[in-house]
């Protein structure tokens, strides 16, 4: 019995030690491999866990569902430094069907224009006319097209099903921009 108790205490201590390093999946700055733990800024800068743990959670990237955080008012990031009216939100969706054996891709303009201006993507990354940009996973994985942001700062490319999300859509229902 004493042996069992000792084991229990040992496991409890071990678990406590494991959880010391901040709550959740966020790394403290001093331990993130980037920040210099001896630098004067380390005690001043905000810790990711402090800022991100109160936002809608997600399973990848920053572990924050940024689109939800914005839409539901958890965050209210400024849309401009200058005094400008709120940006226009485009709600059209594009279904991309040339996806081999994977589900079709549904591209929602809304989630993107809530953060970005049209001209950031058009026409530098994507032509405006549907079907004229040769988007493919090889290029995306090398940081082109969607891969400029997805894989770097927007949700990562391991989240296949978020884009490849449409199993079967009749052609007539596939939305296209006007």
């Amino acid at each position: 019995m004493a042996r069992l108790q000792r084991r229990f205490v040992f496991v409890a201590l071990l678990c406590a030690a494991c959880s010391v390093r901040g709550a959740g999946p966020w790394q403290d700055l001093a331990d993130d491999g980037l920040h210099d733990p001896a630098g004067p800024g380390i005690g001043v800068l905000q810790q990711p866990g402090e800022a991100l743990s109160v936002l809608p959670q997600d399973g990848a990237g920053n572990h924050v569902h940024w689109v939800k955080a914005l839409r539901d008012g958890f965050i209210t990031p400024r849309h401009a430094l200058a005094d400008e009216p709120p940006p226009a939100i485009d709600t059209t969706e594009i279904i991309m069907r040339d996806t081999s054996t994977l589900p079709f891709v549904r591209f929602p303009h809304r989630a993107h224009t809530e953060w970005l201006d049209c001209t950031i993507c058009h026409d530098r990354l994507f032509e405006r006319k549907v079907g004229t940009t040769p988007i493919n996973m090889g290029a995306i994985l090398q940081g082109k097209y969607c891969g400029v942001c997805h894989g770097a700062v927007a949700f990562p490319l391991t989240e296949c099903n978020r884009c490849h999300s449409v199993r079967d859509v009749p052609v007539a229902k596939a939305a296209a921009p006007p």
Partner: peptide, 26 residues
């Protein structure tokens, strides 16, 4: 020091979890 806060020797690039051949390597 608030911006210049990195360890010595780190190269310019996007860091963080999910590496691909793309942005994570720039």
């Amino acid at each position: 020091d608030l911006c210049h806060s990195a360890r010595a020797g780190l190269k310019t690039g996007v860091r963080g979890g999910h590496k691909t051949l793309g942005p994570g390597e720039y």
